[in-house]
Nucleic acid binder design. Structure first.
Lengths: 365, 365
DNA sequence: TTGTAAGCGTTATCAT
DNA sequence: ATGATAACGCTTACAA
């Protein structure tokens, strides 16, 4: 009944205490050998390390360390909906990359958390997982709920492009001004008839030509701001909403706007590069040349796969930079510092998809 | 110096012990109220909850819970290279989605870990972060190193499409057979001249027409298997390697194969749907109609953005399923069960991009 | 149904 | 440079 059959000692993994004892040092000394937080005599270190290797001790258990230190080295990033959907958007991906970058310096990893309405029972939540901080992306419906949960725990949070509450630092973009800049570019080229393909207006993601009423009711912040920017210059632009940010959606929207040769615009402004790529395809499909017959602008400045040889005229948003800023903000928050919200600025980039409108009617196919 | 300025008691967050004491119950009872792992009298529960709310106690600290339970509820997923790159591939994204799905049932979250050669100093590692298990994706150079680190800690691991070591369950795909199936489809349609666009051969990602020597030296498992499958049927196919899995890469490769009208193939088999989409664009760019003048097949069966109205003839791999399987495998591993490796099977899907070759020379533009 | 008590494995602090 | 000691906040046998 004792010894063998019980086998407790044999099965148990070695702890730092075991190593310390076997090496004939105190646990604190052994701890320091692994953390390097205080000077240790070389001979001592070697002895401890040797014993550790012998005992198969692979270093301090992060679970125990995180309890003691009060830090887990994990930062949660909350995304809306399925990963598949979230990561379809290259901007999100780039941002995530920036976040991991910004956090790596801190030694923290990124934990992906979904913010579905239909969460699986037992799924990990902000409350169930040991996170040091939280980055919330986008304006999820759950945002405020999440923020409350997080605040109750005293976990610092940063919101990227969403309506944060009191005292939560935001990372934002000058969506309106950037869009206006693109519009002014087209105006400068001489365009009068300019239409817009927008991101979704709201959760319904309704597609199609939008009435003034629908436009007035846009709830997605990014969509509204970018549209407002365009309308500073072209208040009468026709507006078609897409069902998402993708090439195929852009193609559908582009077809709608290019349907009738009579009131065809000389330029189409898309609210994302992906949508712009789709618009270009819709134009080419009708035999229109870009930019000679139709100028097209995008938004984001991401690398769009499938754009072929075109270089999109667009505004480049610092997506990775936004992520990094979020990471950095988290770092400062964890250091107990005050953090201000930041607004990032887009940079105009002229490509090969815009030029002066051809005079008279565009050469219809 | 005392009281106010010190403020220890005031600043400290309430613990479950504080709640228990204030509610006049024992810590264990309070614990059970939150975990629900044992019956508690309604009146007791309510009292505890009320006190908790009053004290601003938001539930047990996951850090402490994870030490005590020996589980953190976190599973690391190790990806190769930058997230930007990894998530550019829709298959990876879908797989990740499956992993989160499979793990959600377990109540575990997904921690993203990069496996760069050039890791930032202080970046989180498998050793520094409290993970219950690890999922390794792809055949990174670091794979074996990672596996050793993980094994030393007694952390269970699963490998998706990579060369796992002893006793590590793998999640695999019938790459060779699926490719062969596509080849047989083309043979059945009557194609004799079939060429191939492959994924990268190795870390160098060299582009272009491949010599037999280069082909013999392919190190990427997936590339080799899919190519072997094709060569069962078409041993003399010309092979062009792409620099990655993307539409633009497919377009470049497609141009290479379609350059000379004289020895143009009647069908091109691409090793991914993205590459296939690029090949189609390269064909259309030359005025070739798909499938009349050129049949094109893909691999993966993912939704390709920017494919327009074509439906790709391809083999559908259960990417989400693979991820789920990895999640499930992890769950069983954590339950102490033995887990076998699994090989997933692709399903052939006939689309609109293949048909019998047109007789005589294809209508050259 | 509730309470008692014993850790989980580490690290920070303060002596020595 | 090293050691003793006390937490970190929680969970779970087991006892009552």
């Amino acid at each position: 009944m004792t010894g063998m059959s019980q086998g407790r000692d044999a099965a148990r993994r070695a702890t730092i205490a075991d190593v310390a004892q076997a090496a004939g040092v105190s646990p604190s000394t052994a701890s320091v050998v692994f953390s390097g937080k205080a000077p240790v005599a070389d001979s001592t270190r070697e002895r401890v390390l040797a014993v550790a290797a012998e005992l198969g001790y692979a270093g301090p258990d992060p679970r125990a360390a995180s309890l003691r230190r009060g830090r887990s080295g994990i930062v949660a990033v909350v995304l809306e909906g399925h990963l598949r959907t979230a990561f379809l958007d290259p901007v999100t991906t780039a941002m995530m990359d920036g976040v991991t970058d910004g956090l790596a310096g801190l030694g923290a990893g990124v934990l992906l958390l979904r913010d579905d309405t239909d969460a699986v029972a037992g799924a990990p939540t902000l409350a169930s997982v040991p996170v040091d901080a939280v980055v919330l992306i986008g304006c999820s419906g759950r945002l405020h709920e999440d923020l409350d949960a997080v605040r109750a725990r005293g976990v610092p949070a940063v919101v990227i492009e969403g309506d944060a509450g009191e005292g939560v630092p935001r990372i934002d973009l000058d969506n309106r001004e950037a869009a206006a800049q693109l519009a002014r570019h087209l105006r400068g080229l001489g365009h009068e008839r300019v239409d817009v393909v927008t991101l979704p207006f709201d959760a319904s993601r309704l597609r199609g030509l939008a009435s003034p009423e629908r436009i007035a009711a846009i709830t997605v912040d990014v969509t509204r701001k970018r549209l407002d920017g365009v309308r500073e210059e072209y208040p009468d632009a026709r507006v078609v909403s897409a069902g998402g940010s993708s090439i195929d959606e852009g193609m559908i929207a582009g077809r709608t706007l290019l349907e009738q040769a009579e009131d065809r615009p000389t330029a189409i402004m898309a609210q994302s590069d992906l949508l712009a790529a789709g618009v270009i395809r819709a134009a080419e499909e009708r035999g229109l040349r870009v930019p000679e017959d139709l100028s097209v602008t995008g938004f984001d400045g991401v690398v769009v796969d499938g754009l072929g040889d075109h270089v999109l005229t667009t505004v480049v948003q610092p997506a990775v930079g936004k992520g990094r800023a979020a990471g950095a903000a988290v770092a400062r928050l964890l250091a107990g510092e005050q953090v201000e919200s930041i607004v990032f600025t887009c940079r105009f980039r002229e490509g090969t998809t815009t030029c002066a409108p051809s005079h008279g009617r565009a050469s219809a196919p």
